[in-house]
Structures are given as C-alpha cells and as structure tokens.
Write a protein that binds this DNA or RNA. Structure first.
Length: 207
DNA sequence: TCGCAGATTGCCT
DNA sequence: GGCAATCTGCGAA
C-alpha cells in the first residue's frame, strides 16, 4: 500500500507550475522535480502521481545525453527552452518521458522522469499497464509512460496543461534526496545525476 | 529475491 | 548494421 498524502489538494484544484520553474540546469531541475505532481487528463479521466525519481541529461557536455553530438530531428525538443515534454521511443517498444530544462533556446538539457508514486486514477493506470501490483505501476520510465498513456503524440507539447502538466504538490517541503549514478547508460557513468527521494516507503526497493 | 535472456523498432554511423 | 536513458518472465538460490 502506498502511504497516504493528506497534505495534497484535490486533483481538480491542481494548476501547472510557472514556466520559470524549468529555467535552470538539468541537475537543478532534477532535484526540484522530486516531490512535484505529474497530472494527466485523458478525456476527463484524471491521473496524478508524485515524482520520486529523476535523472538529469544534457548540460553543455554530457556523453550520455541524446543531445550529445548535436541537434537531430529526434532530439530537437531538448534544445528548446524549459517546460516542454521530450518523449522518445527506445528498445523498440518503450517510450520515456523527459522534461526539458534550461533558460535559453539552443542549449540542450532534459530530466528523465524515472518513477512516481500513484495517487489518483490508479484504476486507469492499472488498466493501461495491464498490471495491478501498485509497486510495479510507475517504477520505471517506460512503465510510467504506459500507465499515463504518454506516447510520441506528447513529444514537444508545453507542460502547462491541460492534458499533461506538473503541479507543485508538496514542493517546498524539505525532502531527503539521494544522488546516484544513472541507469542504463554506457557513457558518462561517473556523474551522480540520478536523484531519488530517500525514506520513501513506496519506492525504497529502487535504491 | 536475484540475475539473465529475449523482445522489437528506429535512430545514427 | 549496430545498438539503445527498458521491461518482463523465467529459472535458480
């Protein structure tokens, strides 16, 4: 059972975070995004989850980033200013959802949303995932996309609603974060750019 | 609980 | 043609 969050407002009252929130470096944004709420509205069906694990990519020189080596059609969204969704397809069957970071157009950077804690619309997530186990519902970037029905169609959209946006949630409350090495990459392994919320009962298995 | 193999498309060299 | 910011099922311990 996920623990309860009594301090979280009703989902219908959630509003998108200001664009300026995203106008920082990828690493800074990766830390800021932990504890915020990801909201998805699919034809009136509301899904809400609390982000608990992220990874930073990009900056000026990061060999693990899709933007390393220059701009292509695939990674073009990463070169925009902050606050856009960068969704890519990988391993022939999975989508991954990123939040573009940065103030200036032309400087690539993004934060991969790796895991979240389901709060509202759990039944819809279970249907989308074809799984009922709560612990496995959003415990990975591709799982999260499947549960939230995020596909190529969401690539490049602005994260200020209404179908997909991020809300402050418990942001501002002090959180205990752990920085570790990033998962599933070949280059740039030295960087501790994976951010995980510590002492989270729901996701402690991921550490 | 842990580790490994297989799935399967498209991007980039 | 190689390989990827992954997940799942299965078998072993």
């Amino acid at each position: 059972m996920p623990r309860r969050h009594n301090n979280i407002p009703h989902p219908r009252s959630l509003i998108p975070i200001n664009k300026s929130f995203y106008e920082v470096t990828p690493l800074q944004l990766a830390k800021k995004l932990v504890g915020t709420l990801l909201i998805r509205d699919i034809d009136g069906e509301l899904l809400v989850a609390r982000i608990i694990e992220t990874e930073a990519y990009g900056g000026s020189k990061d060999p693990a980033s899709h933007a390393y080596g220059g701009k292509t059609e695939r990674n073009a969204v990463m070169f925009r200013s902050g606050g856009y969704a960068y969704v890519y397809f990988t391993y022939g069957m999975h989508f991954c959802f990123n939040v573009v970071a940065g103030r200036k157009e032309g400087e690539p950077g993004a934060v991969l949303i790796r895991a979240a804690e389901p709060l509202y619309g759990i039944d819809v997530m279970q249907i989308n995932r074809k799984k009922t186990n709560l612990r496995d519902l959003l415990s990975g970037p591709a799982k999260l996309c499947e549960a939230f029905a995020i596909t190529r169609d969401q690539n490049g959209i602005s994260l200020d609603g209404p179908s997909l946006f991020i809300s402050p949630g418990t942001a501002g409350t002090p959180l205990k974060l752990t920085a570790t090495k990033r998962i599933g990459i070949k280059n740039g392994r030295d960087k501790l750019w994976r951010i995980v919320e510590k002492n989270n009962n729901y996701v402690s298995v991921l550490l």
